[in-house]
């Protein structure tokens, strides 16, 4: 009796673990032919946002441009949601061919995936209420209430940068924006591109502003399968072409311009060589 009970518990545990291990196995159809599967964010205004069946944002436009240079028409692109935590797995298991989703190039990530780019240089910045002039940068955060997303790079960075920071962490940036607008927190910190996207949203227009004193450098790259140097070279060429023939500027202006956002120093970047 007792052994069956323990056996049942063990079986249930194994079942639960395996079920969670293979939970995200969608988007398998339509992979044949000339299709290309590109991972983007579905929930970041100005960068990658899904509205009905349309996708809009800087990352989406960059992805469309690069796909076109690789010989894929816009209709052949299959968009896949690439949440931050799943990006490496999506690439290594081949569920997507490339990822254009505010994907910062870091040494840890380079061990798992390949990168082409950077195609954009962002920086960590602060979003504050439009009528708040007391916060001018990371040095003026004494006694201020700050908000960011649980475990994000930005949250870790601000903990290191600002001693004794009074940080609130939420699951998503939208919750931080809600708290900021209602006065519960004084500033929201993450990449300036993401902040500009929120500041430009219709419901927040005129209520929020980006401080404009970036205190980190995030090199957004296009994530590729590790070791695929041939594709990396093609994508790098596409990024170079996009920057030289002016499409880069158009894409940035169209998506991030409405928030009054100016790309920080270092833009447009020079893509690194593929290794």
């Amino acid at each position: 009796m007792k052994s069956t009970r323990i056996g049942l518990v063990a079986a249930a545990a194994v079942l639960a673990l395996t079920a969670s291990a293979c939970g995200s196995d969608d988007g398998g159809e339509g992979s044949g032919g000339d299709g290309i599967k590109i991972g983007i964010k579905f929930d970041q205004p100005g960068l990658g946002l899904k509205k009905g069946s349309d996708y809009a944002g800087m990352d989406v436009d960059v992805a469309k441009y690069v796909a076109k240079q690789l010989g894929h028409e816009e209709g052949d692109i299959q968009w896949v949601q690439a949440p931050s935590a799943q990006r490496e797995n999506l690439l290594s298991t081949g569920q997507v061919d490339m990822i254009v989703a505010t994907y910062s190039i870091t040494d840890e990530r380079k061990e798992k995936v390949g990168f082409a780019g950077p195609y954009f240089v962002a920086g960590q910045d602060l979003l504050v209420r439009a009528d708040d002039s007391s916060i001018t940068g990371p040095d003026s955060l004494d006694g201020k209430k700050l908000c960011s997303v649980t475990g994000s790079t930005s949250a870790q960075k601000v903990k290191d940068e600002v001693a004794g920071v009074n940080l609130r962490e939420f699951g998503t940036y939208s919750e931080c924006v809600t708290a900021l607008v209602s006065g519960g927190v004084d500033a929201l910190t993450t990449d300036d591109t993401i902040l500009a996207g929120y500041a430009a949203q219709d419901q927040y227009k005129g209520k929020l502003k980006v401080v404009g004193q970036p205190f980190s450098q995030e090199n957004y790259g296009i994530g590729l399968k590790k070791g695929d140097t041939a594709t990396c070279q093609k994508v790098t060429d596409a990024i170079n072409k996009m920057i030289t023939d002016g499409d880069w500027q158009k894409i940035v202006d169209a998506n991030l311009g409405p928030a009054g956002y100016k790309p920080p120093a270092g833009n447009p970047p020079t893509p690194d060589a593929c290794s």
Partner: peptide, 10 residues
């Protein structure tokens, strides 16, 4: 766990 996933990949 969310932070580790962010830094080291899932």
């Amino acid at each position: 766990l969310a932070q580790i996933t962010e830094n080291e990949g899932a």
